[in-house]
């Protein structure tokens, strides 16, 4: 018959497998688990084990994240694209005689579509052949 000291000794030596005649529904087993949970003491190494468990995984996770960023970086716009077309007319000097001149922004139908900036000069005379 197995005695508590023997089980405690087995527990202390990390040999946790129980004798085959101890079944889960056995009252002896229930008492053993209750007592085992009470007598178990984490060693200092075990108390420090969680950082050593987490650190490599965090490091590998960071490496994986950085690798994904490294691959995706060329496709990530670092500067936002302006919503309005940046093509612009800053100064306009109509030298030839004309009736009117306009600077127009032709909008596109869709945000992805193309727009255009138009300088339109009306009433220009056709070139004199002479």
């Amino acid at each position: 018959m197995i005695r508590w000291p023997e089980l405690e000794k087995a527990l202390a030596s990390k040999r946790l497998s129980l004798p085959p005649h101890l079944k889960a529904g056995d009252p002896f087993w229930a008492e053993f688990r209750a007592r085992a949970s009470g007598i178990r003491q984490d060693t200092q190494a075990e108390q420090l084990s969680w950082p050593f468990y987490l650190w490599p995984r965090l490091a590998w996770g960071a490496v994986a994240l950085l690798a994904v960023l490294l691959i995706a970086l060329p496709w990530i716009p670092l500067r936002s694209t302006p919503a309005t077309p940046a093509t612009a007319v800053h100064t306009l000097d109509i030298v030839a005689p004309c009736t009117s001149a306009w600077i127009l922004t032709l909008p596109s139908d869709t945000p992805q579509g193309e727009s255009a900036i138009v300088i339109w000069v009306s009433g220009l005379e056709e070139e004199n052949p002479s």
Binding site: P85, T87, I94, V95, E114
Partner: peptide, 13 residues
Amino acid sequence: LNTRTSLRGRTPL
């Protein structure tokens, strides 16, 4: 005419 402009992206002048 003469004009000073800036061109960007695919938006034509």
